[in-house]
Design a binder for these strands. Structure first.
Lengths: 198, 198
DNA sequence: GTCTATAGGTAGATAGAC
DNA sequence: GTCTATCTACCTATAGAC
């Protein structure tokens, strides 16, 4: 397995989860090790028993965000029996991971990339590519079946961009639920001769 | 007029343009006032003759990015004689502003929002809303004419998200040009009975 | 494992000379 | 307008006691 993500050492995990929220809300650079310590009831110096550096915490947050989402998508796809269900799973899993409770980690992955050192990027890119490969596979199947447009590589990037951006405007406590958002976004991309038969 | 953006004081403008590039490449927080001074051949202390704080520079960069893009879209829409041409203008102007040469300012607006103080946000939101209103108007017209799906508010957010995300993967020196990207992204969203007649 | 204390560095901003 | 010099504050990370 990949050691970037998480030992199930609970102190470490507690810290990663707290860091995810802080990094999402304030940004990585503005969050100090004192903030991180305070969030889990430790002095700032004590953090460095668990992590060698602040950046190592950032990388752990990102790895958690993307691996969890990948796992959730894998299991949702395994449960989906039709191609339409698989397409729906892409949207539902991604949006729940991004907008659901305590899921700040994926958002940090998307929006704090610039703070990751060159040395740490390759390991994270592997994880990201694995996730995007799941998307690509489903979109290719769907295009072959005529459900979506055939320009699937651009379609994948376009759709992921749309979904990523929801964090900037969607309010989970508003009048639209995450599931409804997923359905409506999916409807925008399905080719119309197929929308009736879903 | 809006004083957030730019007096045409050239020293100030030179600084804002240099700051846009640095903020885009390194992020606002990682860019120091010493970096900014160095980029324009000034000592760090001298910056504060032109701006009261580092954040004021950030706000000026963002205001420049969004107002310039708005102006470019307004003039492109004024030149467009068909509805299809207006739709195309939305994509072309946005992508050129985001991906073209020396246009870092808009990207900073999109990706450094968290570093803007609460006090400075309302003024920028007004500028952003003006830009998005142009989009909404064209999309509503296009939906009425049957060119795009009718869920135009969600469509606007979806499309802008897709476009914003291009900065994360598009390389202007690759095999696809910005104009070609704009055309292909537009093709993904046009309703199919209309794509032949463009 | 967590604490206290602090090293060592750099940040944004100011003051006054020119 | 720009420079030099510097203030104050805060940052990440370490050392050694418990």
């Amino acid at each position: 397995m990949n050691n970037l993500a998480h030992d199930h050492n609970s102190r470490r995990m507690e810290l990663v989860l707290a860091a995810a929220s802080l990094f999402r809300d304030q940004g990585y650079e503005r969050t100090t090790v004192r903030d991180l310590g305070h969030a889990v009831g430790l002095q700032s110096g004590s953090l460095f028993y668990h992590f060698r550096s602040k950046e190592e915490i950032l990388v752990a947050v990102m790895a958690l965000g993307i691996t969890r989402t990948t796992e959730q998508l894998e299991s949702a796809l395994a449960r989906a029996d039709t191609l339409n269900a698989k397409l729906a799973a892409l949207f539902h899993v991604h949006l729940h991971s991004l907008l659901g409770e305590n899921q700040a980690a994926l958002e940090v992955m998307l929006y704090e990339w610039r703070s990751v050192s060159e040395a740490a990027r390759p390991g994270l890119i592997v994880l990201r590519d694995r996730y995007e490969a799941l998307w690509q596979g489903v979109l290719d199947e769907a295009a072959a079946a005529g459900l979506v447009r055939s320009d699937t590589r651009l379609l994948r990037r376009t759709l992921l961009g749309s979904l990523h951006w929801t964090v900037q405007w969607f309010h989970p406590d508003g009048d639209m639920s995450v599931d409804e958002l997923a359905e409506r976004m999916l409807a925008l991309v399905l080719r119309e001769e197929n929308t009736a038969t879903r």
